[in-house]
Design a protein around this nucleic acid. Sequence first.
RNA 1: GCGGGAAUAGCUCAGCGGUAGAGCGCCAGCCUUCCAAGCUGGGGGUCGCGGGUUCGAAUCCCGUUUCCCGCUCCA
Length: 492
Amino acid sequence: MNMDVLVSLCKRRGFIFQSSEIYGGTGSCWDYGPLGVELKNNIKRAWWRDNVQLRPDMVGLDASILMHATVWRASGHLDHFTDPMVDCKACQRRFRADKLDEQSWIHYCPATKGNKFEVPGGEPCKHCGARRTLCPECGKGELTAPRQFNLMFKTFMGPVEDEAAVTYLRPETAQGIFVNFDNVLQSMRLKLPFGIAQIGKAFRNEITPGNFIFRTREFEQMEIEYFVNPHETIDGRPADEAWHDRWMEERLAWYRRYGIRADNLRLREHDKSELAHYAKRTADIEYRFPMGWSELEGIANRTDFDLRQHAQFSGKSLTYYDEDRRTHVVPYVIEPSAGADRSLLAFLVDAYQEEEVRGEKRVVLRLHRALAPTKIAVLPLLKKRTDIVATARELHDRLARRWVTVYDDTAAIGRLYRRQDEVGTPYCVTVDVQTVGDSDKGEAGDRCVTIRERDSMEQIRVPIEDLSQVFDRLLGEAAWDEVARAYPRAKS
RNA sequence: GCGGGAAUAGCUCAGCGGUAGAGCGCCAGCCUUCCAAGCUGGGGGUCGCGGGUUCGAAUCCCGUUUCCCGCUCCA
């Protein structure tokens, strides 16, 4: 599929709008519309439930976005997140100024009649003695003066800028967890291993935002910091390494559980040169996006780096008392860090399908029922029959108390179904003449409605009294076939 | 920041010097008892913005902003 198709659908159907669009839009920022916010909330809710509420070893946290500036000194972000960069004026390549002298460079040597060859990093040319001044890649272009790239959003706490304390919008939610490690440990009486989870906004001045909501400067993370005792072993392996593997499996399974096709997911191990300054090992969960395989979630072994740094900078002890070994330990931490917006994009991309039905194109979002923004649409088959409309409205109001339900009577039934398909509504309930009967002919209604399933377009006839219990199952764990079996099929 | 492309209706796009168009969607009515049916009607755009050329600019020129795609970078 093409990303533009999805961008267009998202706008047209109220999932995602360009930020500040009436002013021409603003780069890299996107707003979630009425359906988008439901979808995103559902994703976050599923993540929270599966990773926090259903696990005895996990607790949650919601830390402030603005933190003490020293946090970012301790975490290493202030040093590592700001790089001086230079550009080649000829070939447009960009380089880190501080790494320029380390890399080999292309040289057109005047002493050898302008022959082109590569000189090792940091060394002068053996023939003419020249040192590198031009672009190391093309050997021809001049480089611009170094420019400072600050990947953190700097801001001021306090209304008077001169007197205010400089701080930063957090570039990751993780640090909020680390600085609260001891608070959580003490208040919740936790034993290793345990994890702290957090969902929240983070901000990075990405050099190259883009690909719709894939890389944005303001984004939402779903992070877990899972603390383990480095002195323990599991099946003969250090606990941190064993838990790293477990979390990779667990997280991969999570995406599959909510409908992402296995062959669109893969794990990619970082090689040594790619590792962040704190990481012992990192593996990414990648999804096959329209623009190629890209990271959904990074699962890193951050070792005891962060707790040690914060202990040092704050002067507070951030240790855990190991009763068995009668010693204080600094836990190691495994960090599964997922992007909420990226997940949402992956769920959308994976769910989007076009198919041909009776010679017409049908666009359907096969979203997992737990994620679908609206669960049920109630549709009257005939709009001018007031009894049908009244029954449909009544049904809608009843169902809406428990599930996100919409009512629509503004078009013919076929069109109404297609609209719901396009936004991924898993079930439609249709009220027809048989439901309410025909008082002119003295016929009583059967008080049954049709439930139509999105993916198969199959329909069953269900008594209104059963609806609540049927949707409990259809929107819970039960498979469609399992539920549908008990009811007569309706022809479409 | 550099290079390239683009900016016209909600969406997709045509128009490329002579008073703003199509398809789809949307809204209303008629019709219709189950998968984008039909008919009638309707709303909606100072053609990104600013300047210039011209009798006349969506169209040509200059500037500018924004978006998209590459490149550099991604904790």
